[in-house]
């Protein structure tokens, strides 16, 4: 039996940047142990200093390789950098193979870089459910730039925009024509557009498509005082990253005052909603008549809406009594 250190006692070493304590808190947050909730609450109250950058894009668009290059640039600028790299869980076994670290192995010995792999464990939207608690832990550990790399997403997984101060959408050349670019969804959430693999000749077309989409007024994110730039990059030729890092800082500046307040409020209401959802679902499913209701719905003697309504009514009267 290993010695169990209470989560509240891990906060001090974690806030001094001690890797083992940071890592252990993250594991407990991810496992959503009831013991860790008090500590997560305390950490939340202390956090809020880091610049959280969300990086998203389709599978194979070059996100992980790009993150590795970005971390080098940010380190050269004296930043302490953390990366939360999210990969999908198998829908069948629930297991996962988390491979993003492979592309960042040259960063392993830098004490001012922390990389953590997470699996989605059934959550949709490109994020892992505890990702934002993990960001807070890294925040109090003194990392000033925290990059969340989502799973490879489709067109509609936009949760990252509710989780980050600066959302970067990576588009790869050759994956679609201008029709893709006018579609709603992921391209609309970008504060910064990056076209990867610009060593390829068809990247020009992707750059042009994105720029014309922006000219038509689509894809500027939600912030009224900010126009999303389109930056070309090549991880292979190490190009475009100075520009990208400069865009991070510029966007952070644009969040001074009211826009930043609006953004923080958007993130907080998202978290509050998520927390409430999780709690309600947990209690809802724990009700004694839940299985019975499911059987009735399966037999089609009751429709799912009425069954849910009955359960919610019971649940609320239980809560108020």
């Amino acid at each position: 039996m290993a010695d169990y250190i209470p989560s509240m006692d891990l906060i001090e070493p974690a806030s001094k940047g001690e890797t083992w304590a940071v890592a252990r808190l993250i594991s407990r947050a991810e496992a959503n142990m009831s013991e860790v909730r008090e500590a997560i609450g305390e950490i939340y109250r202390r956090a809020g200093n880091a610049h959280v950058i969300g990086l998203t894009g389709v599978p194979g668009s070059g996100k992980s390789t790009m993150v590795a290059k970005l971390v080098h640039k940010l380190r050269a600028a004296g930043r302490r950098v953390a990366v939360v790299a999210i990969d999908p869980s198998s829908p069948y076994s629930g297991g996962s193979i988390l491979g993003d670290r492979i592309r960042m192995s040259d960063l392993a010995l830098d004490r001012d870089v922390f990389i953590r792999s997470m699996a989605t464990h059934g959550s949709v939207g490109g994020m892992a459910h505890a990702a934002l608690d993990v960001v807070d832990i890294l925040d109090i550990a003194g990392f000033d730039k925290i990059i969340i790399e989502t799973v490879g997403v489709g067109q509609d997984e936009v949760e990252i925009a509710n989780a980050s101060h600066t959302t970067v959408v990576v588009s790869a050349p050759g994956l679609g024509d201008e029709v893709q670019a006018i579609k709603a969804g992921i391209l609309e959430i970008a504060d910064i557009h990056v076209v990867s693999k610009c060593d390829r000749s068809d990247s020009n077309k992707t750059m042009t498509d994105l720029k014309s989409m922006l000219r038509d007024g689509i894809g500027h994110g939600v912030q009224p005082n900010w126009r999303a730039p389109v930056i070309g990059s090549s991880s292979f030729q190490e190009e475009g990253f100075d520009e990208l890092v400069a865009a991070f800082d510029k966007h952070l500046e644009s969040l001074e005052g009211e826009p930043g307040r609006a953004r923080r409020e958007q993130i907080s209401s998202f978290r509050l909603r998520k927390a409430a959802e999780a709690l309600m679902l947990e209690r809802f499913e724990a009700q004694s008549d839940f299985d019975g209701a499911a059987t009735d719905v399966a037999a089609r003697t009751v429709d799912p809406y009425s069954a849910a309504e009955t359960l919610v009514r019971n649940f609320s009267s239980e809560a108020s009594s």
Binding site: Y92, S93, G95, I97, R101, I102, S105, A108, S117
Partner: peptide, 18 residues
């Protein structure tokens, strides 16, 4: 993975420190 575990693979040629 198929047994439901989260598996991280280091890639080749790492050092013990890494």
């Amino acid at each position: 993975r198929d047994a439901g575990m989260d598996v991280i693979y280091s890639g080749l040629h790492r050092t013990p420190e890494e």
